[in-house]
């Protein structure tokens, strides 16, 4: 493990049982590394396993197979008790700021709870000394501390969620669709806040979102997932300028362009059909059922994720 990596994930697999001996292949052999102070974006359609991937890394789910190495320590098989000191190093920001905050707790208590849970403060006063500056840091005020979550707007709640995640000074923050529930004019506020924290504290982000232009803007590297597997991974600008996998091309082609002239001129490469069920994923390349370029080989042999130059990795028989 190299010193500069905060997170290394090797062949991570997470299967769920779905009754009658059926298995949901939510995440199927994913490998990547995340460098300190960098942001890795994960994109893909709903059901591609990006959230399961995040939740397995943070050990909300127990991995079926594979390895998770956080800051040089293998945390894959740790028991919850052993894991506790490592939980301080990784925190999560959730999508729905309405569901992820306890309605019966004041904002102060919500933000102080991680400090209490990790015995980092002895008294309420001590906690307040950390909570109040954090509130101000995320753009709220001391006066907000004694209010309840329902008194806040979506954007303000997401700020509380960010404060709770960052109060422990983690090194890795997993952001699972942190802005998709927010209004357009508020999204940029939250993104700027996350970027400022990163600059200030050298945080690493695993950023999961379906808004492809926002992912490009925040990420250093981007991984594209399809049915539990990574199909392409590269430096962010490279993947958007030069997408190689037919799925990435289709995904990027589906993004609406906020420019009416361009939007109507462009030759669109879009994807037909729905994402297949992860209970019986297609054989070979899982994308072959929707791929316009599929050849017979694609349904038989699973393409490996290979480097095609300059760190641009793609799993496609057309690029070998």
């Amino acid at each position: 493990m190299s010193e500069q990596n905060i997170l290394e994930v090797k062949d991570l697999t997470k299967h769920f049982k779905a009754g009658k001996k059926q298995i949901v292949h939510a995440v199927d052999g994913i490998s990547f590394t995340l460098q300190r102070g960098k942001t890795l974006g994960l994109v893909g359609e709903s059901g591609c396993g990006k959230s399961t991937c995040a939740r397995t890394i943070i050990r909300m789910y127990d991995p079926t197979a594979g390895q998770i190495v956080l800051d040089g320590t293998d945390i894959t098989a740790m028991k919850q008790k052993e894991l506790k000191p490592y939980r301080k190093k990784m925190q999560m920001i959730f999508q729905d700021p309405y569901a992820s905050l306890n309605a019966r707790m004041t904002v102060r208590d919500i933000i102080a709870e991680p400090l209490m849970a990790h015995n980092l403060v002895k008294s309420k006063e001590e906690a307040n000394d950390l909570v109040y500056p954090m509130l101000e840091r995320v753009g709220l005020t001391k006066e907000h501390a004694n209010r309840y979550a329902h008194e806040f707007s979506g954007g303000q709640r997401q700020r509380v969620g960010i404060a709770r995640a960052l109060i422990l000074e983690p090194q890795l923050v997993i952001c699972d669709e942190p802005i998709s529930a927010l209004d357009v004019s508020i999204q940029a506020q939250v993104i700027n806040l996350l970027k400022d924290f990163q600059e200030e504290k050298g945080l690493s982000y695993l950023f999961i979102a379906h808004d492809l232009s926002m992912v490009r803007y925040v990420s250093d590297d981007v991984g594209v997932m399809y049915l539990g597997q990574l199909v392409e991974m590269s430096e962010a600008d490279e993947i958007y300028r030069n997408p190689l996998h037919p799925y990435t091309k289709g995904l990027l082609g589906s993004v609406p362009i906020a420019n009416p002239k361009l939007a109507r001129q462009k030759e669109k490469s879009s994807i037909e059909g729905d994402i297949p069920s992860p209970i019986n994923p297609p054989s070979g390349c899982r994308f072959h059922t929707r791929c316009p370029y599929a050849v017979p080989e694609c349904s038989r042999v699973k393409p490996e994720l290979v480097d095609v130059g300059g760190g641009h990795k793609v799993a496609c028989h057309l690029h070998k």
């Binding site: 359609e45 589906s254 609406p256 879009s270």
Partner: peptide, 8 residues
């Protein structure tokens, strides 16, 4: 909906 489905 997902962007791919939205596009369709």
């Amino acid at each position: 909906l997902d962007v791919t489905i939205q596009d369709q």
